[in-house]
Amino acid sequence: MDWFYSQLVFIHSLLAWCSVGLFIVRGLAFQFGAEWSMDVRLRSMVFGVDTMLTVCGLSLWGSIGYSLTRDTWLTAKLLALVGYTVCAHWAMGRGEFRVLGYLLSLLLLAYMMGAAITRSPTLGLA
């Protein structure tokens, strides 16, 4: 179990960094009007990475037995994930305030990473 868990954590971390990198580059390119940022091949790759990240995260969650009421950092991280998804969709749209959506997405990404590292919904500040 320990080997499987450590490998799953490594894969989850690697996929998370891939997802963050893809969003930063693609989102920034989209903000500046680069047509390649909406290429179907790139979008498919982003979808694949995010799907594998989700499956891996749910597998970790199930193997460890976290509880959303007991492990509040995970609850906060999942709520931030929902907010990130909404803001990222907004950032990649045609709206007038898409730069704000992009910046909020980055802020929520940073929060999710901080919550995962500190295992605290307050990022260890309280």
Rank of each mutant, 00 (worst) to 15 (best):
W61I: 02
V99F: 08
R41T: 12
P121Q: 08
V82L: 03
F10M: 11
T75D: 09
W73P: 09
F30E: 01
V25Q: 08
T118M: 15
V20Y: 10
A116I: 05
L123G: 08
W90I: 04
A80P: 03
M113K: 06
W61G: 03
G124D: 09
I117T: 12
Y84T: 00
W36L: 04
G101D: 06
T85F: 03
M92I: 05
L100Q: 11
V55H: 05
L108G: 02
L53N: 08
V86R: 00
L14P: 04
A91G: 12
L74W: 00
F4W: 14
F32R: 15
L108V: 06
L108R: 09
D39V: 08
G95W: 11
H89V: 11
M45P: 06
L15M: 07
M52A: 15
L60C: 02
T75P: 02
S6R: 06
R70E: 14
L60P: 00
S63P: 06
T72F: 07
L53A: 12
G65F: 00
A116R: 06
S6P: 05
V82S: 07
M112P: 05
V20C: 03
L78V: 00
M112W: 12
W73S: 01
L125E: 07
I24V: 15
H12V: 04
V55I: 15
R41Q: 07
G27D: 03
A91N: 02
W90A: 03
L15Y: 01
A91F: 09
L100F: 12
M52L: 15
A116H: 08
L109S: 10
H12P: 02
Y84W: 13
D2C: 04
T54N: 05
Y111I: 10
V9Q: 01
W90C: 01
F10P: 04
R43I: 04
G48H: 10
K77D: 00
L79W: 05
V55M: 14
S67M: 01
G124H: 08
L68H: 01
A29M: 14
F47H: 15
A116P: 10
Y5C: 05
A76L: 13
Q7G: 12
V99R: 15
T69W: 02
R98K: 12
A110P: 05
W3D: 13
F32D: 06
Q31R: 04
E35S: 11
F32P: 10
S105G: 10
F10K: 07
L107Y: 09
A16P: 02
L68F: 03
G21V: 05
S59Q: 09
I64L: 12
S37K: 05
W17H: 09
A115F: 08
T75A: 13
A91D: 03
V49N: 11
P121F: 09
L108N: 09
L60H: 00
T72D: 12
V46H: 06
